[in-house]
Design a protein around this nucleic acid. Structure first.
Lengths: 190, 190
DNA sequence: ACCGTATGAGACATTCATGTCTCATACGGT
DNA sequence: ACCGTATGAGACATGAATGTCTCATACGGT
């Protein structure tokens, strides 16, 4: 096998990030294989997209796990929650950058299985944000779901910033963190 | 004429906001007209999309004008800039809500004419943000382009919040403003 | 009532992506 | 060197969306 399933998925994602409307023929070409071989690995476009979506969700889930979101939610400890929040956002940047097109791809968002999985992961995050509010880490006067959507939107902003070359990759975590937590306004006090 | 060009465009946008992949046949049906009539008004799908994109950009431009962004940029007065910022964000919410799908529609973002126009409008906003930083309204330690992309991302968040019914429409301006300016973290001082 | 115009229904050709299949060949392991 | 397997090239059928065209009809103004 010249190209493993994994390798094909990698090149497909890269190419889809540049052109979300890429055809199977273009994705095959991007992977350096023929249409026939691509179809031997993924029997349909939908299957390929589903595989990409699953991998993205796995990584999203791993970010939640590695940053200890669930434990932090249960702990209620501001210190623990704060650290988990930082770690989660840093991890989400990686995933959003790697799977950028999936953030706003309609076919992806509409797939029943993927929708179910993202709903689950989102609910965990929302519970986490609510705990963060309870613990005094996040403002309590914002709906937790709004906070969740805000993070989503900022990840879209990250994707665009990187795609357009507006900010350096190494600056992104700091920019996202500080903007998300403290806003864009100049602090009166300080 | 049962349906004016404007009316067709309105129903088309509504329908595209629900299903960005809607076909011309579906858009015609949504407008209550036949495919033939739709094609008499817009000779191709591309022409329809271009018309929608133009209208969205016109409204975006009007928001900039009505909120006095350019004058505020030139003035350098923190007071004036602050008011213009509030007004602009409130206006952008309306546009983003109305033309939601266009925020992330690839075909729309890729059209040369529309890309040119949005680049122009963005540059004005970036200049405005830079002036806001100069005037001490916005933090000076963030790249103006990052701030601009942040606003874009938050508008996507607004669209999603409204589409999913996570927040009440009347709460959106306040939520966006306060999140954007002050962030999601609980303020230490107060 | 009449006439010009806009409309709807539908047929039609075209294009494009998709998925299937065949066959020759190149490659890898034994 | 041989054989089994994976691959590439390409033909093929299919389906969907698009854009064009025709023709009958309904509507509106005079």
């Amino acid at each position: 096998m010249a190209m493993s399933r994994e390798q094909i998925m990698s090149t497909a994602i890269q190419h889809l990030n540049e052109n979300p409307l890429a055809s199977m023929a273009q994705l095959a070409e991007a992977a350096g294989i023929s249409r026939a071989t691509l179809h031997r690995q993924f029997s349909s476009r939908e299957e390929l997209m589903l595989a990409l979506g699953r991998r993205a969700h796995e990584q999203w889930e791993q970010v939640q796990e590695r940053s200890g979101v669930v434990d932090a939610t249960a702990s209620g400890d501001p210190e623990v929650i704060g650290k988990a929040l930082d770690a989660m956002l840093a991890g989400l940047i990686e995933v959003a950058d790697a799977y950028g097109f999936g953030l706003t791809d309609y076919a992806m968002l509409v797939n029943p299985e993927l929708k179910r999985r993202s709903d689950e992961l989102e609910e965990r995050e929302i519970a986490f944000y609510a705990a963060a509010q309870q613990a005094g880490v996040l403002r309590a006067d914002l709906p937790a779901r709004w906070i969740s959507n805000t993070v989503y939107g900022l990840l879209v902003a990250v994707r665009e910033s990187l795609r357009r070359g507006d900010v350096a990759r190494r600056d992104v975590p700091r920019l996202l963190l500080t903007t998300y937590l403290h806003g864009a306004a100049r602090r009166e006090e300080s």
